[in-house]
Amino acid sequence: MFRSATKSELTQLRRAFDSWGIFEFMESQVMLVKGDPTNRSRQVLITTEPSKDTVNQLVEYPKRVGLIIGELQNKKFTPSLGGAEVIAKFGRNFPYILVNEMAEGLVLYGRDILGESVLEVSKGLGQNKKVIILNQNRESIGVGQTRFSGENIFRKGEVTVYTLLDLGMYLRDQDNQ
């Protein structure tokens, strides 16, 4: 089922959107949630008002609506690739790491990130923090999770950021069809 967020979900999501720097952007969007409120995991998506109306009017049940921006799981929001792109484009002061060209290529194959490949990180980045992985054009190429905090993210010879999602998934998934 595709539905509006409940009051409790809205509180959780607004808090998450604030931390990802897209609170203001999201306030102007038509947001829906897929799945029963009691489900452990629910997709969060944005669409248009006419598309939402169409979905409500049709008796058929859609497989997908709009652009999935993330997942709400155990009160925590994790951005999807679509959400990461929204954050990179419209977010302010969001957690990120910026990688060099070689790492960009490796990330697109799902590889984790070595410290020496990291060129820049957002301020106050903690350990086990979800981050948007940016390339040198400041485009989102994935979502990662830090292994270390602060300057340790630049530590040479070690994986310092795990790659959770990457744009290469679009290709790999098609290849597996």
């Binding site: 049940y61 999935i68 679009y170 069809q177």
Partner: peptide
């Protein structure tokens, strides 16, 4: 059903927000 997933991925890749997919 097999073609829904690539369709869904392409819509996501292209940043499409105004579309709903129906398998029928």
């Amino acid at each position: 059903p097999r073609r829904i997933r690539p369709l869904s991925f392409n819509l996501a890749r292209c940043g499409v927000m105004n579309t709903s997919i129906y398998q029928m």
